[in-house]
């Protein structure tokens, strides 16, 4: 094994010479030390990652060129459950086009997002509505996600300072199909603190799976430090070299029993997206 090659961290280069300078009489000891150290060094490359680097790794998983998704949204409100299904195309972070397929009353409702703008099409009246101003702060289709949440850019690094806080193993509860799954995952805990003022959440705490670099839990905080929302991501599946969660839930902590789950039933990356998908004209088709 080649330490030097793997360890990009300068600290590694310093550590090795120290070991070679050990006295011969202490060989057995030093051998054991070497063994322990080398074990540590196996782990070290990841431990030594900075917060920023972890986020970079996450981004590799979570961002993509294009994708086609089919998903199911389950909204729990005061004991009731409402299920909506949708299909969407996305291109990068800036463009997406979604269409609701069920229930019947929502069938044909379409959303188009281009950059910071969002439009909605209501088939019952054949009208396009631009979602702006106060509407942005409202819940999207009655879920715990607001339109704002949907628009919020994933490029967190630009707006937030990332800091690796600790590592811990947490339990994640999610749904896979119909079964409930609880999994223990070793995670990095990252604190993202806003560098600029115009962000919705001043602080975000993210738990990133240490092995596959997928975020599994996010907590969103107010400026005062009060926790407002909790997001859980689970049911991670491998798509080529990419790990991607198929389950996302969002819970608003200031509201009693409200929870929204988003379950991806089918996702394909790097698909060819029909021309003119991301146009207002397409909303009316």
């Amino acid at each position: 094994m080649n330490f030097r090659q793997r360890g990009r961290n300068p600290r590694l280069n310093v550590a090795v010479p120290i070991i070679t300078k050990k006295r011969k009489g202490a060989e057995a000891f030093s051998l054991r030390l070497l063994l322990t150290l080398s074990l540590c060094l196996f782990a070290l490359p990841s431990v030594a990652l900075t917060g920023e680097e972890i986020i970079d790794q996450v981004d590799k998983n979570m961002t993509f060129g294009t994708a086609r998704t089919e998903a199911k949204m389950v909204i729990h409100v005061s004991g009731q459950e409402r299920v909506k299904t949708m299909a969407s195309y996305s291109e990068g972070e800036d463009k997406s086009f979604s269409e609701f397929l069920s229930p019947p009353r929502d069938k044909g409702v379409k959303y188009l997002k281009i950059g910071d703008n969002m439009w909605m099409y209501l088939p019952s009246v054949d009208k396009i509505i631009k979602i702006a101003g106060h509407m942005l702060k409202q819940s999207m289709m009655g879920s715990d996600f607001s339109y704002e949440d949907a628009l919020e850019s994933n490029k967190l690094k630009e707006k937030y300072a990332v800091q690796l806080v600790s590592q811990e193993t947490i339990y994640i509860k999610f749904r896979r199909g119909t079964e409930e799954v609880t999994k223990a995952r070793p995670c990095y805990v990252l604190d993202l603190t806003a560098k600029v003022k115009d962000v919705n959440y001043h602080k975000i705490r993210i738990w990133v799976d240490r092995e596959i670099f997928v975020p599994v839990r996010e907590e969103l905080f107010a400026l005062s430090g009060k926790k407002l929302k909790v997001m859980i991501l689970g049911d991670v599946q491998k798509h080529g070299s990419r790990y991607y969660p198929r389950y996302v839930s969002m819970k608003n902590l200031l509201r009693e029993d409200s929870l929204t789950e988003m379950i991806i039933t089918d996702i394909k990356f790097d698909v060819r997206i029909p021309k003119d998908t991301f146009t207002q004209r397409n909303l009316k088709n």
Binding site: I75, S124, V125, K127, I129, M141, G142
Partner: peptide, 16 residues
């Protein structure tokens, strides 16, 4: 008249 409002469950809805 196009009436746009929210349903009892928070979805945007409309009717002519």
């Amino acid at each position: 008249l196009t009436v746009v409002t929210q349903t009892a469950y928070g979805s945007i809805t409309a009717m002519n």
